[in-house]
């Protein structure tokens, strides 16, 4: 355990000192401050627009962070052979996978937490600026719940990064696969709904139905983590829903890490 934590700390330190992270944080902060101006443009549901913009910024920063900093942290290890210095230590491959994963999510968590703090400050400021009637539906609980869901999604997405890094040697391929998985995960539910309606109407062959079902089991359902729209209208999801989602993401992450370590154990590092 000590060794895993040491590796996570190493990964986190390497990531936090990356200039790309600084750039992403600055972009995030600028976007957050820009929401102050943009909110004023809208007419009625100011609270909705404000929460939308803030949550979207946080999500966007998280995506940039995962796609460009975290993938780099993972793939560069093998690309540039920095992995030698880690694996020449008494760490098993599984410990390596877990340590790296913890380092990545720590990085995402800290970065998003900072943005969340700033964004809360901005919301508080804007709220005190306009009449309360425009913030009828606003609720801090909903805002925080949406942030929590978002961070949870990044925990899963980073496990996807780890999984693809264990298969591929090139950071570009990891990026490509991860983005593809992300897009699929975000849209799969909607596409399924559409297909199901079609299937009802036109009697698609049974095999299509199976493929659809299997795809839903393989790909993570990222759209379940997106409750930004609900949060912006002050709709709080019940605790059971949150628990179900936590359970789902935890088991999906564990499975991904498990497969990653299986593959990685077999792999030769040359």
């Amino acid at each position: 355990m000590n060794r895993i934590l040491a590796l996570s700390w190493l990964t986190f330190k390497e990531g936090i000192r990356d200039r790309a992270l600084m750039g992403i944080c600055i972009i995030g902060l600028v976007m957050l401050f820009a929401t102050i101006i943009f909110t004023g443009v809208f007419g009625y549901d100011l609270g909705k627009v404000l929460v939308d913009l803030n949550l979207s910024t946080i999500a966007f920063a998280g995506l940039l962070l995962t796609f460009f900093v975290n993938i780099n942290l993972m793939a560069k290890d093998i690309d540039k052979r920095t992995i030698y210095c880690v694996l020449s230590k008494p760490l098993s491959r599984t410990e390596y996978i877990i340590g790296k994963y913890l380092g990545l999510i720590l990085l995402v968590f800290i970065a998003l937490f900072i943005l969340l703090m700033v964004s809360s400050g901005i919301i508080w400021f804007v709220k005190s600026f306009y009449a309360q009637i425009y913030f009828k539906n606003f609720s801090w609980a909903c805002f925080l719940q949406a942030c929590f869901y978002e961070i949870l999604m990044f925990f899963v997405l980073n496990a996807v990064v780890i999984f693809f890094s264990s298969i591929s040697t090139s950071s570009f391929l990891v990026l490509l696969f991860t983005i593809a998985t992300y897009i699929t995960g975000q849209t799969i539910e909607e596409v399924m709904q559409f297909f199901k309606k079609e299937a009802m109407a036109e009697q698609l062959p049974q095999i299509n139905q199976w493929i659809i079902d299997i795809a839903q089991y393989i790909f993570p359902n990222f759209s379940a983590f997106d409750i930004k729209t609900l949060a912006s209208h002050g709709k709080f999801l019940p605790m059971e829903h949150t628990m179900a989602l936590i359970g789902y993401s935890a088991i999906y992450t564990i499975l991904l890490l498990f497969f990653a370590s299986l593959i990685f154990n077999k792999r030769e590092i040359t």
């Binding site: 943009f38 443009v41 809208f42 007419g43 909705k48 627009v49 929460v51 939308d52 913009l53 949550l55 979207s56 999500a59 966007f60 999604m153 992300y182 897009i183 975000q186 849209t187 909607e190 596409v191 559409f194 990222f222 759209s223 983590f225 997106d226 930004k228 729209t229 912006s232």
Partner: peptide
Amino acid sequence: SQFTGPVSLEFKGLVSDFLLFKFM
């Protein structure tokens, strides 16, 4: 929206804001 929905991924709220802004 059959098209914009899936394409806007998890940024549906943001896209709706943007479209409304454009409309305004």
